[in-house]
Write a protein that binds this DNA or RNA. Sequence first.
DNA 1: GCGTAATGATTACAGCTGTAATCAATAAGG
DNA 2: CCTTATTGATTACAGCTGTAATCATTACGC
Lengths: 121, 121
Amino acid sequence: MERIAEGEYAVMEVLWEESPLTAAEVAGRVPPGRGWSLATVKTMLSRLLAKGALAHEQDGRRYLYRPAFAREDYVAEESGRLIDRMFGGRLTPLVAQLAARDRLSPADIEEIEALLRELKS
Amino acid sequence: MERIAEGEYAVMEVLWEESPLTAAEVAGRVPPGRGWSLATVKTMLSRLLAKGALAHEQDGRRYLYRPAFAREDYVAEESGRLIDRMFGGRLTPLVAQLAARDRLSPADIEEIEALLRELKS
DNA sequence: GCGTAATGATTACAGCTGTAATCAATAAGG
DNA sequence: CCTTATTGATTACAGCTGTAATCATTACGC
């Protein structure tokens, strides 16, 4: 699975949300904050195709694009990469990190505890 | 805090581990797997200086380099970025992710639970 | 003192990324 | 039919990144 750039990722998000879509449809769904032209979206689509992150099927004169892998797979790989790099591959230090920065509310803590209880059973 | 590229990060790691260091010393401590020449390390150091990620003090004819911010701060920012992008800013889905991929051993679970208990008290 | 080694600064260059514009082909509308 | 809009393909271009080489300066060994 090849690396996906930040901008390209925005396009993937659109297609993970709904697919297949035409280029124009994708452009219409990219977050407006990006301020992208249709041309830019087309460039992204081409590059993602070349990288093997998208597949396309012909639909008359145009293409319908769809992701070539599941969002969960990509997300798992990226998270793993970061955790390996920054936390020696262990999750605990990450949790500790976030806790120390007040990024964990009591509700979050409760939720994670419930999840872990679940995992043990 | 400006963005740090993957290769630059390797240099930061060296200096977070020990600093201040000269360029040659940094080069001697970069993971050998990188196979970098001294010239490459010098380029990284210049760029990191320009980005404000490093500070330097004169030592005779050369510089001694040191990080301009703590590793924890950088790591917190990067983790936050990823969690925002991929998990809507919430940690629980990340934990669930990793659990579902068997990246959490029973020992890990125990450890995190202990950490969370700690946090609540 | 003089050659040599070390050091920061400058320059190089290809590949990736963000952000398009242009072009050729063709479908759709009138 | 003819014009116009749509679509993928190709090209553009600057900034960042990986990976150095070269250069000018200067300190150090002999």
